[in-house]
Design a binder for these strands. Structure first.
Lengths: 342, 342
DNA sequence: ATGAAAGCGCTAACAA
DNA sequence: TTGTTAGCGCTTTCAT
């Protein structure tokens, strides 16, 4: 591989001048610029990113941590972030933290070791104290997505889980449902907490609270939805509606409901969260809460770019809205009652 | 940040010795080793990856290019690759090539610029000649996934699209279907070609060829499946089965079939490809071809690690098998006929 | 077993 | 506008 020295010799100039042309800063005469560009083309010169980063203390890499890159949810988020980063000439290096404190901390350290220019973090755990210290001292700008607190983050992108869940629960309540089950994701996830608060708020508007509904906890997985729903239906709490923690759980719940011989929404209303691809392909199509995941990823990247550009940017917190998508899996309790009596 | 010099001073040794301890190679006396480890801990020293990479010419980064990181298919693949890479202490830097020759070529150059130790490529286009030259000269090992040719790749992971499609088509033929439509993904995708060849092979076994079925081309998207199916049903080719290029297309097709008032599988059999999450949640559950995507990603990473470890590894080509998953969206033509006459 | 010296390829003061 | 100089932090011969 040709180095900057090769180019400088070929073009008959100093390395600094070549550097100026390559980095496109500083004054260079037209004549030399042309000579240098010719030399670069002839030699097929490409600057060594490692050397450049070492010297300039900027790697042009943005580091990212999400729970799991292979889940469609985070994949979309990462996709959004990557699009914006790449448009700005930055690479995005992403790692999965698996919602485990150790993995998350290790991931951050590795990203820091790689001299990332900035970190975009979707974590589920409080950061290990030592890592937080290192991160703070490093001065590397941090943008968070999601509900976890990070003392060193100057900018946060939040997805409005609270309002989404409140709206969904209101919808069920408006339809007349009172005996409701919520299949919550595990409490290690911030989203679960926020959604529970949203549910609580909606219940409050109807003079109820969380104790007035049935809550089951499990993973954000189809299998949990299936198992929990089977259990629920066997015990026969007289439940008329299920609010699933996400669309995967809802898919499992729907399977269990169908297997029990019941019908959605006639016997039971069902509502999900996320608006995944499969939501509108379930039968009946799933009423759910849409999260603009890709947008959240893009926003976080934009904020990061602003910070890197040195724009002052006071503590920022952007809340991206969620909204209820009404489809066919929810119906008035009236229907349910009449069916029961029929 | 503490540097290796700081550590060496604190421990009262030379930088070389610290380097030996950190990299864990060469002889170091127990006493010095302990002193150095203590100094490292006290200073919170972390080696600078950029400097290390520059000097040693190894970045510990593996570069990856896939069509689109945000699609569940590639996300899973990347997830598998990442798992294996991280377990071996390597970072994985992935970019989307969007099945465009320019984007793919740029991505490869950028990865090369970052001194990646190896490249794992899922491309859809032949590589730009200049890029191929640079890649070849760089000596960076390459593993490909999927059907594109890459002259410099020493190892290839192929997914057996051919057999999968043949099996699916055989299934339809065995069920008695003869008037069949195939909603193919665009011909820019290798997968589309391989699946067509598989279909052709199955047809051949029944004395038919591609001209004997109806083929439509479009994107691997629900919307194409919907539109193409609507068109097909309106023209009324008397089609009794649809083989969709993937499960997303199948989902769209199913929507169109239902909207037309027809039923799957009584009026029309439907088969997909991929076995995405939604396949078994459609109603009826979709018969489809499962691809072990995550495994393919893992395999590619393992091959890469072997190559990096310097194991000789003759030209390798691993074909990962696909297989037909029978569910409820396909049925014997007999049923279809009797229904028609009823 | 350890240290001295050289330099990976680049950028950034500073001087001219 | 251009070149000179001095490293960034690390690894790797090569002596000792």
């Amino acid at each position: 591989m040709a180095t900057i020295t090769d180019v400088s010799k070929r073009a008959g100039v100093s390395r600094s001048t070549v550097s100026r042309v390559v980095a496109d800063n500083g004054y260079v005469s037209e004549a030399k610029r042309r000579a240098i560009e010719a030399a670069i083309a002839e030699l097929g010169y490409r600057p060594n990113t490692l050397a450049r980063g070492l010297r300039s203390n900027r790697s042009n890499i943005i580091g990212g941590v999400v729970v799991n890159v292979s889940s469609p949810f985070y994949a979309q988020m990462v996709g959004g972030t990557q699009t914006v980063c790449r448009a700005a000439g930055k690479s995005l290096l992403v790692t999965s933290g698996h919602a485990e404190i150790e993995a998350e901390s290790r991931a951050i350290l590795e990203l820091l070791d790689r001299s990332c220019d900035g970190l975009i973090l979707y974590l589920e755990n409080p950061m290990r104290a030592d890592v937080l210290g290192i991160l703070g001292k490093s001065g590397v700008p941090v943008v968070t997505i999601g509900g976890h607190d990070c003392a060193v983050a100057k900018a946060r992108v939040l997805i409005d889980n609270f309002s989404g869940a409140r709206e969904a629960m209101r919808h069920l309540l408006e339809l007349g449902h009172r005996r409701i089950a919520h299949l919550s994701g595990g409490l290690i996830y911030h989203d679960s907490h926020e959604r529970l608060r949203g549910i609580e708020a909606a219940l409050g508007e109807y003079g109820m609270d969380l104790d007035d509904i049935t809550i089951e906890y499990g993973e954000f997985e189809e299998s949990f939805g299936f198992a929990a729903t089977e259990r629920l239906l066997q015990l026969d709490h007289g439940i008329t509606a299920i609010f699933a923690g996400d669309d995967d759980i809802a898919a499992g719940a729907l399977l269990a409901i169908k297997r029990s011989g019941r019908h959605v929404p006639d016997d039971l209303s069902l509502i999900g969260f996320d608006d995944n691809f499969h939501a509108r392909h379930l039968t009946p199509a799933l009423t759910t809460v849409r999260q603009p995941v890709s947008e959240a990823g893009k926003l976080a990247a934009s904020l990061m770019l602003q910070m890197l550009a040195g724009e002052p940017l006071a503590e920022t917190e952007i809340v991206v809205p969620t909204h209820l998508v009404l489809r066919e899996s929810t119906a008035e309790i009236a229907n349910t009652m009449s069916k029961e009596r029929a």
